[in-house]
Design a protein around this nucleic acid. Structure first.
Length: 631
DNA sequence: TTAGGGTTAG
């Protein structure tokens, strides 16, 4: 009954809470007293009430103007040195100017008194916490800590979790080590909360993961939070096998994960594209009764969509009671990745009908859906609706989607004009998007020009050289291609090796091109030969222009035949029952030849083959692909 | 007053 939708003065609402008044009539009677005059008189007559009121007012403070007003009340009622009020003052808002103002007021009393108050550490903790939670002023948390030490105020065990959180956000390993030293100096390095935050801090800092692991391994006692922090650290770094491995160890150690742990584990699972593991994780969540928060359900949606089963993602979504924009967006992005653009658009419309306003991320999903499905006009209409209907200023990512949308549809010139007219400077991603469109649609001259410029802009970016080298291969300009290779060697740049992963009986197998490390490699290569014969008989012609090396046609075919994706398929055909779908996860984009060969394999061997490449999914079935050869 | 987590173009 005290919901703020009544639009009453929050001071009174807080008073009501304190007086435990429950009748609406009484509330209404009290609310008539609402006026600044009444509040002021309260301050003047009773300092205790004034303190309570001040605290209540601060509770709802969200602007500098309001804070200044409260400050006036504070001075009027002689509360400028009240520790409770000052502390509250310092933690009123997430707005930086308010925190700065509050901190300056809070700290100003330190100079005016000779002895420290019991709550001074409390006060600093609050300021440190407020800064640690900001997005751009985390370093102020560190300065406040220095100030604290400068005033000879000893930190307490609550100080460090806040401080370490700020370090985690600053990603600075050296700073983290310094704070670690300080933690030890004050003897709080044995506190579980502090240790957990320490693990998190190191795991967030650049190059700090091994330090995190050291702290974690040396902890005499851990909680599920310690494990979560460590697993989350691995997951964020893409060290997914470490994350999953540690999760298994956690179970062996008998520590029960909670919903936060499971979100990190699911994100590692997404990275591996391990659908079977993901399904088991959902089963585990149900079996162990892990609280299915909105965040956890969102992670499940994301997992199913990115591990290749967007229908399962939809099932999780439909069962959710409370959905957020993230839930909707995860489904939209998922549908887009699977080339189900029309459904993604319909889903976006359903979201709007449900009264959920799209945000910038939802638009990225929607526009990429339009792009992957070739819905040019719809995409253009939605793009202009961003500003006109939703007052969302398009970001570089949205422009990127539009370049892709036009480029994929073959409107390369329009895409170029679009880039030239963009109100923000194009980034290398935009140019690479255009180059890809040029390659697909045979605009080789243009792609060469842009590609050369890109190398000038980003000389240390290996993929730019590979791009140009591929363009020269398509143009049959072998000399230029060789030169590019030489430049790469000279500059010590390397092509990222293609890698394909496949999950089989709870194991994940990785293949790189020409891989002979697998124990079954002889059978795999025999299978490859057989596959080659079968698909050729069905009409497959190798796409040798995708081969980077300047070698004769027969060798080129051989090189193509050893691509990681084909090795993984051969391995799957050998080790799974006929008719079982094959799921492969690649680190790069599918090459033209593998794409063509996989279509034939799906038909010849009567297998559904689902390939997740760097950007999207390809569902191969009966000799065709869900991307309609448009990727 | 203290710790760990979710959607983002190519």
């Amino acid at each position: 009954m005290l919901s703020c939708s009544l639009n009453e003065d929050l001071t009174l609402v807080c008073c009501l809470f304190r007086l435990k008044l429950s009748s609406l009539a009484q509330f209404k009677k009290l609310s008539t007293l609402r006026s600044s005059a009444a509040t002021t008189s309260l301050y003047n007559n009773n300092s205790r009430v004034a303190e309570q009121n001040c605290l209540a007012l601060l509770e709802s403070c969200n602007s500098l103007a309001k804070l200044t007003q409260i400050h006036a009340h504070l001075l009027k009622s002689g509360l400028q040195n009240n520790a409770f009020v000052l502390t509250k003052f310092a933690s009123t808002s997430s707005h930086l100017n308010v925190i700065d103002y509050a901190a300056s007021i809070a700290f100003s009393h330190l100079d005016s008194i000779s002895t420290h108050h019991l709550y001074d550490a409390f006060l600093f903790n609050t300021v440190i916490r407020a800064y640690a939670q900001t997005s751009h002023a985390k370093h102020n948390a560190i300065s406040s800590y220095s100030l604290m030490l400068h005033h000879a105020i000893p930190p307490n065990k609550f100080t460090f979790p806040f401080l370490l959180k700020a370090c985690a956000g600053l990603l600075d390993l050296n700073l983290g080590k310094q704070v670690h030293g300080s933690v030890a100096k004050f003897g709080f390095d044995t506190d579980l909360y502090v240790q957990n935050t320490m693990v998190h801090m190191y795991a967030c800092c650049v190059g700090g993961i091994e330090f995190a692991r050291k702290v974690f391994d040396e902890m005499p006692k851990t909680s599920h939070v310690s494990w979560s922090a460590m697993i989350g650290g691995y997951a964020r770094l893409g060290r997914s096998n470490n994350a999953i491995g540690l999760f298994r160890k956690m179970q062996i150690a008998g520590v029960k994960p909670d919903e936060v742990t499971m979100v990190s584990v699911l994100s590692a699972c997404v990275d591996l594209g391990a659908l079977e593991l993901g399904k088991w994780l959902e089963f585990y969540i149900e079996r162990e009764g892990v609280l299915k928060t909105v965040e956890l359900c969102n992670a499940l949606i994301d997992m199913f969509a990115k591990c290749g089963d967007v229908d399962e993602a939809m099932r999780v979504f439909r069962k959710m009671n409370d959905k957020t924009i993230v839930s909707w967006t995860s489904v939209i992005v998922g549908l887009a990745m699977h080339g189900r653009g029309v459904e993604a658009v319909a889903f976006f419309e359903e979201m709007k009908r449900a009264g959920v306003a799209p945000d910038d991320v939802a638009f990225i999903g929607l526009l990429s859906a339009c792009s992957h499905a070739g819905l040019v006009e719809e995409g253009q209409r939605y793009f202009s609706s961003m500003a006109s209907e939703y007052a969302i200023v398009p970001k570089i990512e949205h422009y990127g989607c539009m370049v892709d949308l036009l480029g994929r549809a073959g409107l390369v010139k329009q895409a170029l004009e679009f880039i030239q007219e963009m109100p923000i400077a194009p980034n290398p991603v935009i140019w690479r998007t255009l180059i890809h469109a040029c390659r697909v649609h045979g605009e080789l001259e243009l792609s060469e020009t842009i590609s050369r410029r890109l190398i000038g802009d980003e000389p240390t970016h290996g993929s730019n050289y590979v791009l140009l080298s591929n363009i020269y291969a398509k143009m049959f300009r072998w000399e230029n291609k060789t030169k590019i290779r030489e430049v790469m060697d000279k500059r010590g740049l390397r092509k990222v090796p293609g890698c394909s992963m496949i999950e089989l009986n709870s194991e994940i197998y990785e293949f790189v091109a020409g891989d002979k490390t697998h124990s079954q490699y002889k059978e795999i290569y025999e299978m490859l030969d057989e596959m080659g014969r079968m698909v050729k008989r069905a009409g497959y012609i190798p796409v040798t222009s995708d081969v980077l090396l300047d070698i004769d046609e027969e060798d080129k075919e051989d090189a193509l035949n050893r691509h990681s994706e084909k090795l993984a398929i051969a391995f799957a055909l050998l080790n799974t029952l006929p008719g079982t779908p094959i799921r492969i996860v690649k680190n790069l984009r599918v090459c033209g030849d593998c794409h063509s060969a996989t279509k034939f394999i799906s038909k010849v061997y009567n297998r559904e083959i689902v390939v997740r490449d760097r950007n999207r999914f390809h569902h191969f079935k009966d000799g065709s692909c869900s991307c309609k050869d448009f990727w």
